[in-house]
């Protein structure tokens, strides 16, 4: 690959003083591997923010640092701060369980539990002792409706989650995340294993969810980033190269690197 300079990084000043998520000078290492380098990123409330970049650029690590899932990886080290509603989640006495309840996560491959559809959605509310009986039923119904799955599964709530198609399973995982009443939803390439129709449904759902939740989605699909997001961040080799209004980033990229990525010169 041609040597590409990352010197002239360009960020829009988004003029946000009350960012929902505020990443400041974030550095992450896995062993000796410096995966994220001095990331600064402010994410607005109730928007869809896409993080794009070539494989291995640190996209996934970046969103997993927002709900501290990187803590689970042996040999990971984090330096810097991530503020959520003004609170630094890397503070020593952070309650990570409450943090992860507040921040839902949807993974690359649909990963429902080997339980019934109902039990999948009820899992979170149960472990957080949020509801029981009728109240729990209501949460399950509401979450499935929000994830646009209710009509397809309402007559077979007690069937195994594995009886659903891939796209339905992914929407079930979204419903499962919504059931614990999060404020932020992180999605790690949620459509990478889905066919175009299922992808379209998830993307439509994403737009709707952003009316109520702050959504951060990782994707290496440029069209997807352009279609669904309000803001786009471009990550390259662990550095944030460009960040701004999606339209602006795609139509008028400030960085040469972004332009090359968007026009398909590498990636």
């Amino acid at each position: 690959m041609k040597q590409i300079s990352t010197k002239n990084c360009t960020h829009d000043d988004l003029m946000v003083n009350d960012a929902k998520i505020d990443v400041r000078k974030l550095n992450v290492w896995f062993g000796d591997n410096h995966v994220l380098k001095d990331i600064n990123l402010k994410i607005r409330e109730k928007t869809v923010t896409a993080i794009m970049g070539p494989s291995g650029c640190g996209k996934t690590t970046l969103i997993r640092s927002i709900n501290r899932m990187n803590d689970l990886i042996n040999g990971s080290r984090t330096l810097g701060e991530v503020y959520i509603d003004g609170y630094n989640i890397y503070e020593r006495n952070t309650n990570v369980y409450e943090l992860r309840r507040k921040i839902g996560m949807v993974f690359q491959k649909p990963n429902p539990f080997p339980k019934s559809i109902y039990e999948n959605v009820a899992f979170g509310p149960k472990i957080h002792k949020m509801a029981r009986g009728k109240e729990l039923d209501d949460i399950v119904e509401k979450s499935l409706k929000e994830a646009a799955l209710w009509d397809e599964v309402k007559d077979r709530l007690h069937n195994s989650a594995f009886s659903l198609s891939g796209g339905q399973q992914q929407r079930l995982c979204i419903a499962r995340a919504l059931a614990v009443k999060p404020e932020i939803i992180l999605m790690d390439e949620p459509c990478s294993s889905l066919d175009p129709t299922a992808t379209a449904r998830i993307e439509a759902l994403l737009r709707r969810l952003s009316e109520k939740y702050t959504v951060v989605i990782v994707t290496h699909n440029l069209q997807q980033a352009a279609r669904v997001s309000d803001f786009t961040a471009f990550l390259y080799m662990g550095k944030l190269v460009e960040y701004g209004d999606t339209k602006r980033v795609f139509e008028n990229p400030q960085s040469e690197l972004t332009e090359k990525y968007i026009t398909g010169e590498f990636g």
């Binding site: 992860r100 993974f107 990963n111 472990i127 614990v180």
Partner: peptide, 17 residues
């Protein structure tokens, strides 16, 4: 599968849960 474990932890489950 690790994905089950991650799903539970990402929902805010403790390790014992």
């Amino acid at each position: 599968p690790n994905s089950y474990k991650e799903a539970a932890l990402a929902l805010g489950a403790t390790r014992w849960q």
